[in-house]
Amino acid sequence: MRAATFDRFGPPGVLHITELPDPEPGPGQVRVRVHAAGVQPFDVKFRTGRMTRIPATFPQRIGQEYAGIIDQVGAGVIGLEAGTAVLGSSMLDACADYVIADAATVVPKPAELGFPVAAGLVAAAQTASGALHELGVGSGDVLLMHAGAGSVGTVATQLARLAGATVIATASPENHGYLRGLGAIPVTYGDGLVDAVRALGERVTVAIDAVGGQAIKQSVELGVAPERVGTIVGDPSAQQYGATMVRVGRSPARLAGVIALAARGEVVMPVRVYPFAQVVAAHTVVESGHGRGKVVLSLE
């Protein structure tokens, strides 16, 4: 099988496609023929060596989210069979023709969703829904979503709106129309953010930091209680301001809930699809920190 690997930490160019033996599922596992794999900021941090809490073994594989079709079923697996379309999370091996997954972790893919969109929702759906739950976002809240045009911001904005919250989302001016389409009030990130939000006349009650930098400080300046300022990027200023470090973990149940909404058209995820051979270009785009929605590799 083909797999994206790298032999040393570094820029996107360290990635290359390697031929590896096809894996086989063990008891309680399934093998998925991957049709699409998402590219996350996590992948970028790991590739550059900044994810120090997770050791690398070179040649190191990469990738955390996939969508595809089960083609082999291990012993003891009940309720799943070859030919079933699924999606789910993996650990540093999803950018490959095949991925082995514990049967309990896969989520059936609705026919209404294509493989790229399904793969693009995996991480963002779990992170966004978990963060909103942990911060207690609901009807009457005014959520300040930092980095609203990214994949997590895209999903969090829509889920918060469905929960009855008003959403103010930050982005560059060229993404303001996109945010309006999601139901958010757009503002431009940067030094003038606090004044821009105050000018809207809305009292922000909760905030999610998906970018780092000034986001936590600005949220507290706007009067958000520190415990309702959540960071999903682990910004060091969280401790200084008493903000919440959101560590929601993976949840197939939460993922399935968002996927059901997406199948009904209530949650959308724009994807930018790159052929697998262009894995370097895909990582370059994600590393730039710009763009809307999700970058996805196609392995079909």
Results as ranks from 00 to 15, higher is better:
71 D>E: 06
72 Q>C: 08
71 D>G: 02
114 G>I: 02
89 S>N: 00
119 A>W: 07
55 P>Y: 13
19 E>T: 05
65 E>D: 06
23 P>C: 04
21 P>A: 09
90 S>Q: 12
31 R>I: 00
93 D>Y: 03
19 E>S: 05
28 G>S: 11
80 L>S: 00
117 V>A: 10
126 Q>T: 10
29 Q>V: 04
13 G>E: 15
104 A>L: 08
15 L>K: 03
20 L>T: 08
57 T>R: 15
11 P>H: 06
6 F>V: 02
52 T>V: 08
24 E>G: 06
65 E>P: 02
100 I>V: 15
30 V>N: 13
38 G>W: 09
60 Q>R: 01
62 I>K: 10
73 V>M: 13
18 T>L: 15
41 P>H: 04
106 V>N: 08
69 I>W: 07
65 E>I: 03
14 V>S: 02
87 L>K: 06
121 L>D: 12
77 V>G: 06
44 V>D: 13
19 E>Y: 03
87 L>T: 04
126 Q>W: 04
111 A>I: 09
84 T>K: 06
7 D>E: 12
104 A>K: 11
92 L>K: 12
116 P>T: 00
72 Q>I: 00
14 V>P: 01
64 Q>Y: 13
71 D>S: 03
125 A>V: 01
103 A>E: 12
54 I>T: 15
31 R>A: 07
103 A>I: 01
54 I>S: 13
33 R>N: 09
116 P>Q: 05
108 P>N: 10
32 V>M: 11
10 G>A: 11
105 T>I: 07
13 G>M: 02
76 G>I: 05
56 A>S: 07
52 T>C: 06
37 A>Q: 12
60 Q>F: 01
52 T>W: 08
107 V>Q: 09
62 I>W: 15
48 T>Y: 12
112 E>S: 11
25 P>S: 02
75 A>G: 12
28 G>E: 12
64 Q>V: 04
2 R>K: 14
10 G>P: 11
67 A>R: 01
85 A>F: 00
83 G>F: 15
59 P>F: 14
